[in-house]
Design a protein around this nucleic acid. Structure first.
Length: 568
RNA sequence: CGGGCCGUAGCGCAGCUUGGUAGCGCGCCUGAAUGGGGUUCAGGAGGUCGGGAGUUCGAAUCUCCCCGGCCCGACCA
């Protein structure tokens, strides 16, 4: 490709609405343009990167026996109704001219399960099926450029097995394939235990990259490698040494005290870690009390996972008053009967605690959990904080902001049962196929790579995904000798299968250098009269900004070798 | 869905308070010089001021409605 003919609309200024590094650089470098909220066009450079990422993912999927499909993006209501997912809030719903309902696919478990109905015998299993497909999700809030969008390319794969061991094996194969994929993409991922969320299933691992543009917090231990999403993470706490306290709780007046912090500084109050925080939630339309240590925060996802609730929300002021006859600020669980009380294990065995008295303006002190409160269930509900002890090795835990680039799930038989995908086992009985589901967002991976690999001059693509591997920059296109020399080097590289681009534009050298660095091409060969006078051209490596002069006639070979070495 | 901010030329922005010929920088086109880090000079093209309604002799500017976008939070297969 000649740069003078290429559509690479670079921008001198950062786009005004871009915050995340990847957003800024992908727009500025001419890789993508926004069409509407969370919807982007890929320009030629972006498309090239996308294809390279897809190529790597495809290779690794094929290595573990994956077979590629291409399913429709347009899905019928009937199939999604069978799994109970018709109408989920991220779904883009539409109607055809006859009034038949359809939607744009947000994921494809149902459709693969539908096709899997053609499987008849255990002898045909296992299978790994995958595709690259555009997914549509009407996210509440698209953000961070290409990191969180409403239409995106995803590689999704599905494993089909007869036994739980088979699923474990497919899951493990995917885990390893994903490790190799992210390694080749230049993404430094942390695999974390994750909540399965609305997908169903019982075990899932997310692959996260650390970035300020992320939106998931993960807990990790540098000492032993333990890592988990905060939605799932646990930690060890220092055992509390409470005084026994009085024989019965004592009520005391606390005018105008409504928060944990206010009670902590109130004369006669108690430090947050000696308070019991009482939250009222409506779980599947029934009120429930959640008890946490005063300084601990609730993780709603843990509550969802722990209760298997269909719907769940904080109770309204009116509901709270109806349940406890008091306002938020004076709530407690002492003496409460007839309500479901869930308590976090950090409260287990605690004595002499302080909590609300269910009477506005009053609290109770000297509360012993086991003695005074009827806890229906103990359930891990609290959010881990920085510096708490690792549940595996007791070292200090760190908390990091991350973005999810891949997720693997053990689904089980939720979808295959709903859609009737079963096979006959060895014993002649029909058993539902056991499914796993595994996804990687291609555009998100691209944005993630940019988040990980950039500097003040632009993107620094890893060789494997670079839109072009080498740019041959002609300093002065009017100088016939350098034009010809540049062209020879360029053609030699192309002949060797290198993705090269020839920057033959009639621009000042500075412009060409800036552009090449902005779009992140790993190697640049600069051909100009100054160097040619000594038979030299300059070889510049984007990563590390190393420069060296090399013999004109050897330049192509030297770069060829360097590129080959960096391809993986 | 709550809170905040913003829509004026391809990009970045000023003008709006106090209504009266639509501006600046970059980019783009032509010509010339220059040619190893966003060079310089001269000339030029380019705008339904997000959309609609209203007030007014007159609206980018004032009023109302709508649409779109960004950020924070909530939410999130």
């Amino acid at each position: 490709m000649r740069w003078s003919q290429a559509f690479i609309p670079t921008l001198r200024d950062d786009p005004a609405d871009a915050e995340a590094a990847s957003h800024r650089l992908l727009v500025r470098g001419g890789f993508a343009r926004q069409l509407m909220a969370g919807v982007y066009s890929l320009l030629p450079l972006g498309k090239r990167v996308h294809e390279k990422i897809e190529g790597i993912i495809r290779e690794e999927m094929v290595k573990v026996g994956g077979q590629e499909f291409s399913l429709p993006a347009l899905l019928p209501k009937e199939i999604l109704e069978k799994s109970g997912r018709w109408g989920v809030d991220v779904m883009f719903k539409l109607e055809d001219r006859h009034g038949a309902a359809a939607c744009l696919g947000f994921t494809h478990e149902e459709i693969f399960a539908w096709i899997a109905r053609e499987l008849r015998s255990y002898k045909q299993l296992p299978q790994i099926w995958f595709q690259f497909q555009t997914k549509f999700r009407d996210e509440e809030r698209p953000k961070s450029g290409l990191l969180r969008v409403r239409e995106f390319m995803m590689k999704d794969s599905y494993s089909l097995d007869v036994t739980a061991e088979g699923l474990d094996y497919a899951f493990q194969q995917h885990f390893e394939a994903y490790r190799r994929i992210f390694e080749r993409l230049g993404l430094d991922v942390v695999a974390v235990e994750a909540s399965s969320g609305g997908m169903g299933g019982n075990e899932s691992i997310e692959f996260m990259i650390e970035t300020p543009a992320g939106e998931d917090w993960i807990v990790s231990c540098a000492a032993c490698g333990y890592a988990a999403n905060v939605e799932k993470a646990t930690s060890l706490l220092e055992p509390a040494s409470d005084e026994a306290g009085p024989a019965t709780p004592e009520k005391f007046a606390t005018p105008d005290v409504r928060t944990i912090e206010e009670l902590a500084v109130f004369e006669g109050g108690a430090p947050a870690e000696q308070q019991i925080k009482t939250l009222v939630y409506t779980i599947d339309d029934a009120p429930a009390l959640l008890l946490l240590r005063g300084d601990h925060a609730l993780v709603e996802q843990k509550l969802i996972d722990g209760t298997a609730a269909e719907t769940l929300r904080p109770a309204t002021t009116a509901e709270i008053r109806q349940a406890l006859c008091a306002s938020a600020g004076s709530l407690g669980a002492v003496g409460v009967e007839g309500l479901r009380v869930l308590a976090d294990p950090a409260l287990q065995g605690r004595t002499n605690m302080t909590t609300g008295a269910n009477e506005d303006g009053f609290h109770l002190r000297g509360v012993s959990i086991e003695r005074d409160i009827q806890v229906a269930e103990w359930m891990d509900l609290r959010e881990v904080t920085e510096g708490e002890a690792c549940p595996m090795c007791e070292a200090d835990l760190a908390i990091r902001k991350t973005a999810e680039v891949g997720h693997i799930f053990k689904l089980g038989t939720v979808y295959t049962e709903a859609l009737g995908a079963s096979v006959q086992g060895e014993d002649g009985k029909n058993v539902p196929i056991i499914m796993g589901s595994y996804g990687i967002g291609v555009g998100r991976a691209m944005a993630g790579i940019v988040e990980s690999w950039n500097d003040e001059n632009g993107i620094i693509w890893p060789m494997n995904v670079a839109p072009y591997e080498v740019v041959v920059t002609i300093v002065n296109p009017k100088d016939v000798e350098s034009s010809e020399a540049g062209q020879r080097i360029y053609e030699s590289l192309i002949g060797d299968g290198i993705d090269a681009i020839l920057d033959d534009r009639k621009e000042r050298p500075g412009v060409k250098f800036k552009d090449a660095e902005l779009i992140g091409i790993p190697y640049r060969i600069t051909v100009g009269p100054k160097g040619l006078a000594d038979g030299k051209v300059e070889l510049f490596r984007r990563r590390g900004a190393e420069k060296r002069d090399v013999d004109v006639h050897k330049a192509a070979d030297i770069v060829l070798n360097a590129v080959m070495e960096e391809r993986r």
